[in-house]
Amino acid sequence: MTSTTAAVRAGLARGRAEVRQTLTNGQDLWNYIFPSMVFLIVMFFMRDSTVPGTTFSLGSRTLPSVIGMGIAFGGLVTLMMQLAVEREDGTLLRAKAIPNGMLGYLIGKIVTVSGMTVVAQSIVLIPSLFMLDGITIDWFTLIWVMALGLVATLPLGAVAGSMFSNTRNTGIIMLPVMGLVAISGIFYPISAMPEWVQGLAQVFPIYWLGLGMRSAMLPDGLSAVEIGESWRHLEMLGVLGAWAAAGLIVAPMVLRRMARRESGSSVAERREKAMQRVT
């Protein structure tokens, strides 16, 4: 067994262990369940409204969109927060002090965040199937869109997480992400937006993840209310693929630069600051 194989295996094991840990403590379970409950309640009240121009339930249309958004959030926000926190508390420095530790750490983080995203989205999806009508899942589309969506957003999350050494500053990223959600046709069809807003939304992954999930869960006829009256899988592949490629080029450079600057004294410094925040 080479040292790289060992680190890859350790990383996979690390991811599995961390996902398991999130399922056995109250704080993490609450973080899974609370947002899911909010979305379920929203969709419950939307179920009797219809998608404009059709007789299809607006609640059922929102379900895949919310799941698409959830995948983008998982890749981007969850990874960003974890990196920022684990840099502050010295987890990353430990990884750096171990042979091939950074490789194992990153693989572990990808598995952890992907696993957490799957768990979180299942908590929304499963009850919805009993509550909402008209959902038919095309698993093949669901899986490839989800996988590509994670590959497109995880590197962005890694870059964002590397930029902030103070966990409180991660809020700066949240605001534009929320703005993107608002214009990406998650809770209401994007066609209601002005055209320049539509154009802007289509640059970012959130819109395409929502669209992709809709294509995987809704009857084909509903593509008629989308931009271009189609699920546009090719364009989706193009945009998400471009983000993935750009991210995979930039993220390792940013991560390497961040890791290089970690040392015992930089962690100690952040600890001092954090302690001052508490008192």
Partner: peptide, 30 residues
């Protein structure tokens, strides 16, 4: 090399033996 770092709150959800076993995996090829 061994580096003893001043820990603070990292790996809080891990159990003692579990973490040592995990970190040991990286050293096995050496």
């Amino acid at each position: 090399l061994g580096v003893v770092l001043q820990s603070w709150r990292d790996h809080g959800k891990w159990k003692v033996r579990e973490l040592l076993q995990h970190l040991g995996l990286y050293y096995a090829p050496y």
